Amino acid sequence: MITIDGSEGEGGGQMVRNSCALSLVTGEPFRITNVRGKRSKPGLMRQHVTAVEAACVISGAECSGLAVGASELTFRPGRVAGGEYHFAVGTAGSTGLVLQTILMPLVLASTPSRLVLEGGTHNMLAPPFDFIERAFLPIINRMGPQVSARLVRHGFYPRGGGRIEVDITPAPLQPQTCTTRGARTGVAAQVVFSGMPFAIAERMLARARHDLADWPEDAFSVRQLPAEQGPGIILMLEAAHSEVTELVSGFGQLGVPGERLARTSAARMNGYLAANAFAGPYLADQLILPFVLADGGAFSTVKPSQHLLTAIDIAQRFTGRRITIEQAPAGEHLLGFS
């Protein structure tokens, strides 16, 4: 049994999610202590419990210690089976992070799956649905499986209530070499909001327009959702290239001016565009599982974060495979899988 100290490295919920996913694929049971030991509120939150429950449901796995607030759990995987599944976080907890836990086991299953996930779709500290759909899943589909996702209803923090539907046609993961992003094919900046004054969205977009001065005027837009889907607001900046799409998001936060959020988001996007890397920091996190399970390939990214290094450590412990990091002369970092 693999034993993991959840306070090591990045010390967050990713360690639980990735461990469940890798356990289901490799058949290795694990025990994790000090769950989310470096967070201000340690222990499992509702979304983590739902993610582990989902892993149990799709495989018949056994898990002890699973409860909101728990700091330790033991997971013994079962056999993953495709099928129709419905999971509800019950709060604004991220549907995307629940999907992250069960997607790789299901794309490697023997039969197709259809998922309905309810909870948060656009909330802080998690990739928004748009990132999953437009940045992450196209790479998974390039590797062999076919995964499509639909946003049925937005779910902002703190209300939640969102819904996404995902169809999965499994196939072996084929190694890929992703080191160049290709020519830019388009850019877009959109503020999506609900239950808030229109003026906030306008100010946020105006700051983004100022800081992304070389983007065309028609790249900027505002989308207002029905009030019952809020309150909430998010700025999404998208840069599409022939080989990859980067999507940077800024979530509205109580007491934080929209202009500040837009300035930070634009700086992150400009930083990515100025680099030569294929993957931004958040896409790099997401790619560790499919690439290590493809048993080969490589991708380039920006400077590795502690979050990425922790994901690499967990992946190597479950698979026994080697992941190397080399800095290229142009500044990007090349991750190799063998």
Rank of each mutant, 00 (worst) to 15 (best):
S249T: 09
S249F: 10
G250M: 03
G250K: 02
G250R: 12
G250W: 08
G250C: 07
F251D: 03
F251Q: 09
F251E: 13
G252S: 06
G252L: 11
G252A: 02
Q253M: 12
Q253S: 14
Q253A: 15
L254N: 01
L254F: 05
L254W: 08
L254E: 07
L254H: 11
L254A: 13
G255M: 01
G255N: 05
G255T: 07
G255I: 07
V256Y: 10
V256W: 01
V256K: 13
V256T: 14
V256C: 00
V256L: 11
V256H: 01
P257Q: 04
P257F: 10
P257S: 05
P257D: 07
G258T: 00
G258V: 05
G258M: 07
E259H: 00
E259D: 14
R260E: 12
R260F: 06
R260K: 13
R260N: 10
L261W: 04
L261P: 05
L261G: 13
L261H: 11
A262R: 12
A262V: 08
A262C: 14
A262P: 12
A262L: 09
A262W: 11
A262T: 08
A262Y: 12
R263E: 12
R263S: 15
R263Q: 14
R263K: 15
T264W: 03
T264M: 10
T264I: 09
T264G: 03
T264D: 15
S265I: 10
S265K: 08
S265Q: 11
A266V: 09
A266K: 13
A266T: 07
A266N: 08
A266Q: 05
A267P: 02
A267H: 03
A267T: 03
A267E: 11
A267C: 06
A267M: 06
R268S: 13
R268M: 14
R268V: 11
R268E: 15
R268T: 13
M269L: 15
M269F: 05
M269G: 00
N270I: 01
N270E: 07
N270Y: 00
N270S: 09
G271D: 11
G271V: 04
L273S: 06
L273H: 04
L273Q: 12
L273F: 00
L273Y: 05
L273D: 04
A274C: 03
A274Q: 10
A274K: 06
A274E: 02
A274M: 04
A274I: 00
A275Y: 02
A275N: 08
A275H: 11
A275S: 15
A275C: 12
A275T: 08
A275M: 02
N276G: 06
N276D: 14
N276A: 14
N276S: 14
N276Y: 10
N276W: 04
N276H: 11
N276L: 02
A277I: 05
A277H: 09
A277T: 04
A277Y: 07
A277L: 08
F278T: 06
F278C: 04
F278Y: 15
F278I: 01
F278G: 05
F278N: 03
F278E: 04
A279Q: 08
A279W: 08
A279K: 03
G280L: 07
G280P: 05
G280D: 14
G280V: 02
P281I: 01
P281F: 06
P281W: 03
P281A: 10
P281M: 05
P281T: 09
P281R: 10
P281Q: 10
P281E: 12
Y282K: 08
Y282R: 12
Y282E: 13
Y282H: 11
Y282G: 06
L283E: 01
L283C: 06
L283A: 01
